[in-house]
Amino acid sequence: MPQSAPPNTRQAALWNDVSGKAWVEMQPILDEILAPFERLVVDAGYPREGSNVLDIGCGAGATTLAMARRVGNDGNCVGLDISQPLVALATERTKLGGVANASFEVGDAQTYAFESGHFDAVISRFGVMFFDDPMAAFTNIRKAVRRRGKLAFVAWRSPLENDFMTTAVRAAAPFLPPAPAPDPDAPGQFAFADGAKVKRILEASGWASIEVEQADVPCRIAQRDLMAYATRLGPLGAALREVDRATAEKITTVLPAAFAPFVKDGEARFNAACWLVTAHA
């Protein structure tokens, strides 16, 4: 009998290759852009000093390190990510920063064999929208948390509410083959755009006291970094790796004008529309 493929294989392939490597190279820029979310998630998910905390989809480790500092030397924060390149970078940053109570592991939170009831809290900064089976993932994550332990994460709201995030793809669309209509249930950046859907997933996964609140966060990126950000990450970054040089040049030529409405005084400023989701095990 043929065996089914393990879950999240496509995401694992992406984040252990081109996507993961791009995030490693762009880490300083991304940390600066996402810094406001780091504070938001750590504040919402902080259990108490001396606690054990799990960071899902930890990337290059910024939120893990921030929470490790917050829980103090008697606490511990573990970052888990499916991307080997990002975990390697996070581990290196931890050593350089001398944060002894933070550590990182490569793993898929949907299937990872967590120790039951080990963590006091789970946090995530845009790391939980990529599961093939979100219900299975949040059920597995819940088992890792003690009774009444906290869950806190941020996830993007809809593309319509995040015009900056979709500007590059919209500007490039005339030069690319027609894209199929996005599947709202497929893993990806906007997979949790429907707040009611997020609440249903968590309820079915055994979480309680669920709150799904709108969070509109002012963000900025230096103008000098904007084109690298737009062309190396996300759907456009993937598309540019597949097109010929002439097409790529056409796309990169139109991007500055497309982003011009966001740019002032040497930086692009935009509103990031997301959900701040909290719950208890």
Rank of each mutant, 00 (worst) to 15 (best):
M1K: 02
Q3Y: 02
Q3W: 07
S4W: 12
P6F: 14
N8S: 14
N8I: 09
T9G: 08
T9K: 04
A13N: 13
D17I: 15
D17H: 09
G20A: 15
V24A: 02
Q27T: 13
Q27V: 13
I29H: 01
P36W: 04
D43Q: 15
A44G: 10
R48L: 14
S51L: 06
S51V: 11
V53S: 04
C58F: 00
A60F: 09
T64A: 00
L65N: 08
M67E: 07
R69V: 14
R69H: 12
V71W: 02
G72D: 00
G72N: 05
D74K: 10
G75L: 13
G75S: 06
V78S: 11
G79Q: 05
G79M: 06
D81G: 02
S83W: 02
S83P: 03
L86K: 06
L86I: 09
R93I: 11
R93L: 15
T94L: 12
L96Q: 15
A100M: 03
N101S: 00
A102S: 07
A102V: 02
E105T: 04
T111K: 05
H118E: 12
D120Y: 06
D120F: 02
A121P: 07
V122E: 09
V122Q: 03
I123C: 11
F126Q: 15
V128I: 07
V128R: 00
F130E: 00
F130C: 10
F130T: 00
F131A: 05
F131N: 05
P134T: 08
A137V: 01
R142N: 14
K143N: 09
G149C: 13
L151K: 04
S158V: 11
N162V: 09
D163T: 04
D163N: 15
F164R: 08
M165A: 05
M165I: 07
A168Y: 03
V169S: 15
A171T: 07
A172W: 01
L176S: 13
L176W: 03
A181K: 14
P184C: 12
P187S: 06
P187G: 04
G188W: 03
G188I: 00
Q189G: 15
Q189C: 05
F190Q: 02
F192T: 06
A193I: 08
V198E: 10
R200L: 14
E203D: 10
E211V: 06
V212N: 00
V212H: 04
I221C: 07
A222S: 02
A222T: 11
Q223S: 09
R224Y: 05
R224K: 03
M227E: 15
T231C: 08
G234P: 12
L236Y: 03
L236A: 09
A238I: 12
A239M: 00
L240W: 02
V243S: 12
D244C: 13
T247G: 10
A248T: 05
E249I: 02
E249S: 13
T252P: 12
T253S: 09
V263E: 08
V263S: 05
D265L: 10
L276W: 10
V277F: 07
T278L: 14
H280D: 12
H280N: 15
